[in-house]
Amino acid sequence: MSRAALLVLADGRFPAGGHAHSGGAEAAVRAGHITDAASLEEFCRGRLHTSGAVAASLAAAAALGVDPGELDLAADARTPSPALRVAARRLGRQLVRAARATWPHRELDALAGRFPKGAHQPVVMGLTARAAGLGPLDAAYCSAYEGVSGPATAVVRLLSLDPFDATGVLARLAPDLDRVARDAVEAGRAAVTEGVDVLPARSAPLLEIGAEAHAAWAVRLFAS
């Protein structure tokens, strides 16, 4: 197992489509919920402990070998907003393409064949970690971190926020990221023996509502 593979997968420049998505930040900026670095931090913290924790546990469970089909259904059940389900599958399809090119693996080929229009992105993330020779904790870290780094980058563009302030937000979230990733692995291990129903099902209603409103805008910078 190579530690450096984790850097490749976690790199914001890994070409898996994330650059076109704001993780709900564009809707939150428009609604006046994010106006500066402090409110960005609160937004990211809320996202991390709700949809972020769910995504990280799905990724950890997939990395531990839980059936991707069952995990995909579990992700659907935990994503009330149709717009967010579409975005998650689109990003999953993009990630599986990048992953198959980067770490060729029969499980990724099988996943692409089974979900030609994309499985939920965190599920793909877990299988990608397996293909890269990484473990469930790595998969959980990647998913959790992506869930906050996406909005932080988007807000730099949306509000012309100082990029150093945005990066400082991510650094201050590090202890929370550690906790969410550890808990996600625990949940993933429980899912191996008890099934996917034991995975966390926390949600952030404002993210879901904001995503639905955002999907209907005629003019927007980000796809979600």
Partner: peptide, 20 residues
């Protein structure tokens, strides 16, 4: 294809949305 404020990224650095 939606490009997240970076049209050159979607045609050069991260082309998956266009390929799809």
């Amino acid at each position: 294809v939606e490009t997240g404020a970076c049209p050159h990224t979607a045609i050069r650095d991260d082309i998956s949305a266009n390929l799809e």
